[in-house]
Design a protein around this nucleic acid. Structure first.
Lengths: 342, 342
DNA sequence: TAATATGATGAAAAGGTTTTCAAGAGGGTA
DNA sequence: TACCCTCTTGAAAACCTTTTCATCATATTA
């Protein structure tokens, strides 16, 4: 039987020092190039490291440095393909800078969010990027901030660095597009989480309608979605309305997919029978058919900026002023929207 | 201007000891319930902890415990929705057991894979789950194994715990289904990464054809896919063949989506003009239309088992025998397959 | 030549825990 | 009364680094 047994080989900086016949301080200097070391000693030390395949203990390092050189990303869920996409962009930056990336999935449970943030502090995580958080307890956040950098995406938290995309304006744009096509009965499908981004985009929806003097029909707006198959179930409901909308805008593309399924199942055709629009610009959505009219938010850029900013703050903890960055969106008109049937 | 300035408040076990008028050892005992402490002292200590909002330093803890109580998950990519799905199941288990989860994305670059594994050791990660690895260097793996638990998914690495699903059998099943419908010209679309799982499922494809005496047409098999839009581009190529297949099996569902797009773009209908089948059973795929005939592999179970097994091994490092678990798959016939036109 | 700067190195403290060992206080038993 | 146990606690070592301070040798400057 194959035996994967183990002898815990733990060579330390001390062993290297002994082998290279120098002090541990010198080894440390070689390791970190933190002070000049003569060419010959350096060579000896390097050789010892190589021979003993020494790997420095980051735990000990972090202990004295008071930081673990790692970033946490706290997300409500991961099934929505928006998250993998932004994770990818964040991971790229962390790995470039020698930070590791920890993932925390909260299901947007505020208790869990708080618990995780404290856990991050325990682990001396250097900084946390939180997205779509539901925490509103400013005092708590302030306490956390005393111990760790935080940056929030898609939710404007008091005194916390903030990155978002122009959800209100972007949504207004696409709704105006629908209106310009002749739609007056426009549905709005929200999302399972009650996040500020949702409220924000909903405002854009109302802006557009109001701007054109179209009364807001609350029956057309569905905010809190079911846990399973969000989008699918909601779209179904909208389709069952006596005076059903001729167009539906979906808060995000994950929801739009569900709507697509529901509409096809009902035997209706997009866009002839009903127009669909959405918000996100996910790579994967480009495979949808008919292609989806959507508001593209620069997801990768958002992740990249967020991560770069938090790393900058970590490396240079004296930047004390809250930063806010709102990135522009871009409407892309594709096949899923057209004028309503007369 | 809002000022988020900081005074690094770092209360330690020592401060608690002073405040509660006990020794640090006693505080530690309270913290870990590692030894009996009298009711009254415990109370005083707890009060001090509460009052000073003390959070123990996991770095220091990990240093003496020689482990950071964290699991790493190393994946080649994250765009394929298979990964979020398995991440979710793993995160559930890690968080239940008080482990944190670190994510490493390798793009299946063997150098990066090695680099990351060493980084994990530096960080005293307790265990690494690796999936679809391309590392074949047994010596290297053995060295890693001396320092950290490893478990491999979808790739059988020498002497490393191994979890997989029955890709060969599952693929054979679905190909036989296509054959039974009357298909003889069956394409196979692979994936962008050259992983053992791919070779494995390809064997199942060949098993089925051979079993029915159908000659294997190499033109119908495409293994190495382009980086962008895998599936889409490949399906296009297959459609352009003079004698094009009447059915296409896709290695995974991410690829199948691309194939759907290509086929619709070519003005063909699924399944009347061409049947499509795949492998995965992703939740998100249920939204595809027409619904996809697929081989369901128990992704969440796989992640859960993997994580539970590695945690068991971490907690109990004397299990020295390689474990292999192969989970069964299940064919689900839906709308995307039918008999070929005569 | 004397004073000073620079380069190379080591010793020891610090970072915050857990763990081992030792010891004191009571209670019970012979 | 003398001895042994158990319960509770503290002191100190260990975990593995980085960093500060000090020392010595050599090179530079006045």
């Amino acid at each position: 039987m194959p035996d994967k047994s183990v002898k815990l080989n733990n060579v330390t900086i001390k062993d290297i020092a002994t082998k290279a016949n120098v002090s541990v301080s010198t080894v440390s200097r070689v390791l970190n190039s933190s002070a000049p070391v003569s060419r010959s000693t350096r060579k000896r030390v390097m050789a010892a490291i190589e021979q003993m395949s020494f790997i420095p203990n980051e735990l000990a390092r972090g202990l004295v440095k008071r930081s673990s050189k790692s970033i946490a990303f706290m997300i409500p869920e991961i099934q929505n393909p928006f998250y993998p996409e932004i994770i990818e962009s964040i991971e790229k930056v962390t790995s470039e800078h020698g930070f590791s990336l920890s993932l925390y999935i909260t299901n947007q449970d505020p208790e869990k969010e708080k618990y995780y943030l404290e856990e991050m502090i325990a682990r001396r995580i250097s900084g946390a990027i939180i997205i779509c958080t539901s925490i509103t307890d400013d005092k708590f956040i302030k306490k956390i901030q005393e111990r760790m950098e935080i940056l929030s995406i898609h939710a404007d938290v008091h005194n916390v660095d903030y990155i978002d995309t122009a959800g209100r304006e972007g949504t207004k744009d696409v709704i105006e597009h629908l209106i310009s096509l002749g739609h007056r009965k426009i549905g709005f499908i929200g999302y399972r989480f009650n996040i500020t981004a949702l409220q924000n985009r909903l405002l854009g929806y109302k802006d557009a309608l109001t701007g054109y003097g179209i009364p807001i029909n609350e029956d057309y707006i569905i905010e809190g979605l079911a846990l399973e198959n969000p989008g699918y179930n909601t779209a179904k409901k909208l389709l069952e309305l006596k005076d059903r909308p001729t167009a539906i805008h979906c808060f995000n593309e994950y929801v739009a997919w569900g709507a697509y399924a529901a509409i096809k199942e009902a035997g209706l055709t997009i866009p002839q029978d009903i127009s669909i629009s959405s918000f996100d610009g996910l790579g994967i959505t480009e495979l949808l058919s008919p292609s989806l009219t959507t508001v593209i938010q620069p997801i990768a850029t958002m992740g990249k900026l967020a991560c770069e900013l938090i790393i900058k703050n970590i490396l240079n903890r004296n930047i004390n002023i809250k930063q806010s960055i709102i990135l522009p969106t871009r409407l892309v008109i594709r096949e899923s929207t057209c004028s309503p049937k007369i």
